[in-house]
Design a protein around this nucleic acid. Structure first.
Lengths: 148, 148
DNA sequence: AGCTATGGTCAATCTGCTTGACCAATTCGT
DNA sequence: ACGAATTGGTCAAGCAGATTGACCATAGCT
């Protein structure tokens, strides 16, 4: 495979990812959740199952814990999450989603589904599923980082 | 297609795109080009054919022309590009890559090819080409923006 | 008990980007 | 042809999100 093809693939991937992020965020805002940024969505995804500590969140987002702490301040101030005492560790605090935080997460899922629906219209459902399967096999572990 | 699947697809796409960006940038740095950020690569891509004005670059990157101008200052200072008078418009200046800028662009292509090669080993060349084809059909127009 | 590692915050600073003001050259309208 | 509006570009100030560094409280190990 030629270098230029690799570059074209990279460019297409980045363009699609950037567009998708934009669409999801716009969709969330359009559903009435103001003051949310894409990074918040990735935080919510980590908090959703059963909450997380600031340090865990920092690792998930690939930033310092100070930055994660600021982000938590922000989503707490906006009513999407709250800090609760950690059940097992008196040093730690468990950050959990509020009901509004859950609602915002559901809105993001709907927005993602809307965006993907546009792809299904172009490629067909089977192709999109195949895309998911292939991406899943090359997706890395490690923190979720901005695409640039 | 369920919302949760759309979310999984989005997450996989973002993860792959983020990882790819990281790898390309690391590869460029490893080839001896210091002080370059991913955004520079996208600027180089626009400048490569025959140069561009600051305003065109701003449109391509989806930022203000002031931000684009700063970025040009930076890559000029680092020796990757230079400002030349515009042949047709005395107000404008044409920003073109230097030889070092071209070398850096080639390094980025090689790094991209390295990253894609890892995918080929997992999926096979045919599948990767299919991926490129599918992404190409859903890739948007418009500026290249950070994935978040 | 003591020592070290870990979770978290406060404070200062940096970087990339935005808004706002402005100048020089071009293009448009009559 | 000539003044008005538009366009290309820079300067300056300020903001937002992140980083580094210092510090405290609790845990865990020996």
């Amino acid at each position: 495979m030629q270098n230029s093809e690799a570059m074209a693939l990279s460019a297409a991937l980045l363009a699609v990812a950037g567009e998708l992020t934009q669409r999801i965020n716009d969709g969330v805002v359009a559903r009435g959740f103001e003051g949310v940024r894409p990074a918040h969505g990735f935080a919510f995804a980590r908090l959703a199952p059963g909450g997380a500590t600031v340090t865990e969140l920092a690792a998930h987002l690939g930033v310092t814990k100070q930055a994660a702490s600021q982000l938590v301040d922000e989503i707490v101030r906006k009513g999407y999450a709250e800090r609760r005492p950690h059940p097992d560790d008196a040093r730690a605090r468990l950050v959990v989603l509020t009901e509004q935080g859950w609602a915002c997460t559901r809105a993001a899922e709907e927005a993602a589904a809307d965006a993907v629906r546009a792809w299904v219209e172009v490629l067909g459902e089977g192709e999109v599923r195949a895309l998911l399967g292939r991406l899943g096999r090359i997706a890395p572990y490690g923190p979720v980082r901005p695409a640039w």
